[in-house]
Write a protein that binds this DNA or RNA. Structure first.
Lengths: 196, 196
DNA sequence: CCTGCGCCTTAACCCAGGTCAAGCCAGGGT
DNA sequence: ACCCTGGCTTGACCTGGGTTAAGGCGCAGG
C-alpha cells in the first residue's frame, strides 16, 4: 500500500477493504504538475480524475462571454476532475489548474469502472462521493440565496482556513461571484471597521 | 403494480427489476395534500420522502433572519424530501409545501434501507438520484456565478415551462434570489422592451 | 353589495457592486 | 539599476436590485 493515509481518508466515507485499495493503487498513476499547469483543459474528454496528494487546484469555468468563474478549490486529500461532465459523458467545460507545484494520483474513469464491477464497495464509495458533492453545492446555493458578497467572504474563510495565503485574491472573487475590484473594496471596508 | 408509469420513469435512471418495484409499492403509502398543506415542516425528522403523483410543491428554507428562499419546485414524477438533511441524519431545515391539491407516494427512509439491503438495484438508483441532484445544483451554481437576475429568470422559464401559471410570482422571485418587487420590475422592463 | 385579503405593481430613495481607468508595489529578468 | 509583469488598490461614475410605502385588482365570504 503506497498511500495508507489516503486509504484511511476514503474509508471514512464508505467501508473499503484494504485489498481493494491495493487494486486501485495498481491502476493509479502519480503525476506532478507545475504551478499554472492544467490537469484538465476545456474540451478534453472528462475521462479521468485524481486525488490531490500535494498542492492546490482551482476549477475554472470560462463562460461563453469570456468571464471566468471558479467552481471550487481543491487541496490535499480532495478529488479533482470534471465531475458533472463525467456523469454526462461530455467533454469538459472546465479547466483544472494547479495553483502551486502539485502532485496528484490519477485514475482513468474506465479503470474505476472495472473496479466497480469487481466489488460493490466502489459503488458505495461513488455514491458517497456524489452525495458529498451534492451537499457542497447545496450549501453554496444557500449562500447565494441568502447572503451578501461580504457574508459569503467571511464564510469562505471560515470554511477554508487552510487556503489562506495559497490562492490569489482575484480567484476568491471569482469564486464568490464578484469582481476583483469589488472584493478589494469589501476587504478594505472591513479593515476600516475592524482596525485590528 | 399500481404505478407502472412511475416504474418506467425510475427505470430510466438505473436498471430496476419489476419485482423489486412491487416490493417498493408494498411499503409505500399514498397521501393526499391540500393546497398550502405541508409535506414536511422545519424541525421534523427527515426520515421520509415521496414521489409526486399529482400537483406541485415548493421547498422553502426559512433563514435565521426570517427571509424565505426557495430551493426547488417539484412537480409530477419528481422527488420531494429534505434530501440534504436526510443524508446528514439531521432534522429538516426546510418546509415542503403543496402549491396545489396534490397526491404523493410516500416512502419511509428505513423501509427504503431495507429494500437496499435486499437488492443492489436500489443502491444504484440512490446513486443516480444523488448524481442528478448534484447536476441540478451545479447548474444553479453556474447561474448565480455568471448570470444576472433577469437572465436567470429567462432560464427558469425555459427549464420549467410546465410550471407556468401554477406558481405565484413571489415564489419565482424567492427561487431566483431576489425580491417580489425586484422581479416585478424585471418583468415590466421586459414587457416594455418586447411590446409583443 | 361591500369588505378584506392575497397578490402584484409602481414610485422614491438608497447602496452594493460593476465598469473603466489610473496608479501602486513587489519580484524577476536583463 | 532598469523595466516588465502580475496582482492589488482607489477613485469616479453608473446601475440593478433592496427597502419602504402606497395603491390597484380580483376574488371569497359576510
Amino acid at each position: 500500500m503506497r498511500f495508507p493515509k489516503l486509504f484511511e481518508r476514503l474509508a471514512t466515507l464508505a467501508p473499503l477493504p484494504p485489498e481493494e485499495w491495493v487494486k486501485a493503487e495498481a491502476v493509479a498513476k502519480e503525476q506532478a504538475l507545475e504551478k499554472r499547469e492544467l490537469f484538465l483543459r476545456p474540451g478534453d474528454a472528462a475521462d479521468r480524475f485524481a486525488v490531490v496528494l500535494q498542492g492546490v487546484f482551482r476549477g475554472v469555468r470560462v463562460s461563453p462571454r469570456g468571464g471566468e468563474s471558479i467552481k471550487a478549490f481543491r487541496a490535499e486529500g480532495e478529488l479533482i476532475g470534471a465531475y458533472a461532465e463525467m456523469l454526462q459523458r461530455r467533454p469538459s467545460m472546465t479547466a483544472i489548474e494547479a495553483l502551486e507545484p502539485s502532485r496528484v494520483l490519477v485514475f482513468q474513469a474506465r479503470d474505476f469502472q472495472t473496479l466497480e464491477q469487481g466489488h460493490v464497495c466502489w459503488e458505495r464509495l461513488a455514491r458517497r462521493v456524489a452525495e458529498q458533492h451534492f451537499l457542497l453545492k447545496e450549501r453554496r446555493e444557500q449562500e447565494f440565496l441568502e447572503l451578501s458578497a461580504e457574508e459569503r467572504l467571511v464564510n469562505f474563510w471560515e470554511e477554508h482556513p487552510h487556503l489562506k495565503g495559497r490562492i490569489p485574491q482575484r480567484d476568491v472573487a471569482a469564486y464568490l461571484g464578484i469582481t476583483e475590484v469589488g472584493l478589494s473594496r469589501i476587504v478594505s471596508r472591513r479593515r476600516k471597521r475592524t482596525p485590528a
